[in-house]
């Protein structure tokens, strides 16, 4: 499991797409944080976590899913399609492979968020631990969902297609819950992480639990596949 997660982690950092995304994330955070800093200087002290981290949080809530999916939608589907997976499944359990990948992807995002937050904290002169936790848990959910879609897809193109659809639908439906009262849409709200992001961090374990359920389903699906 560790070997696979390290491999996944390093591979993500090696890709150009990942670097662009991390730079974008950091750029947005920094931009908003420095605006907040100017604001604070002009209008007295508003040194709250929200102002400094609004850029990062918003970027992650709106684009986080999409970013995770773009980078990791094919982590299982492509390896199954081009049959590199055949060398992995005869060496370790399929459960370890999926969990290793989930861990590697999550660690990649933790590191990226951490980089952005450290840079923001240089401006704000304090570290925003709550934001770090919230973003990490959100991205963990994203990683697990990406693995679910990847383990369901036969090909890389298939997982890309479904990944993009889901990464647009998930936030869209979540935001729709604010305006639409239909019962099923209200239910969906509790299954996606968006609703909990607005609440206190005490609700984060619920998101973790949802992610673990999604991960378990992915493992079961992957275990039944022929490679």
């Amino acid at each position: 499991m560790w070997a696979i997660s390290t491999h996944e982690f390093k591979n993500l950092f090696k890709s150009i797409k990942a670097i662009v995304i991390v730079v974008f994330l950091t750029g947005m955070s920094l931009l908003v944080a420095s605006l907040a800093e100017n604001f604070a200087n002009q209008f007295g002290d508003i040194n709250t976590e929200g102002h400094y981290t609004a850029g990062l949080s918003a970027t992650i809530i709106f684009f986080g899913m999409l970013f995770v999916f773009i980078l990791s939608h094919d982590t299982i589907s492509s390896e199954a399609q081009n049959r590199t997976m055949r060398f992995l499944v005869n060496k370790t359990s399929r459960r370890s492979i999926v969990m290793g990948k989930a861990l590697g992807i999550t660690l990649f995002w933790l590191t990226s968020v951490l980089i952005s937050l450290v840079i923001v904290s240089l401006v704000a002169k304090q570290f925003f631990f709550e934001t770090f936790l919230q973003c990490s848990v959100f991205l963990f959910y994203g990683a697990c969902t990406a693995l679910l879609i990847s383990s369901l897809s036969k090909k890389g193109s298939e997982s890309l297609f479904f990944g993009i659809i889901v990464s647009i639908l998930l936030p869209a439906i979540s935001f729709a819950t604010v305006f639409i009262d239909t019962v099923w849409i209200q239910w969906v709200k509790y299954l996606t992480p968006y609703y909990y992001m607005d609440l206190s961090i005490a609700y984060l374990p619920i998101v973790c639990l949802l992610s673990i359920i999604i991960l378990t389903v992915s493992i079961k699906i992957f275990e039944r596949r022929d490679l």
Binding site: R83, T84, F87
Partner: peptide, 10 residues
């Protein structure tokens, strides 16, 4: 165990 599968890639 060690395995050389038939059709696979690196």
């Amino acid at each position: 165990i060690g395995v050389l599968p038939d059709y696979s890639s690196f």
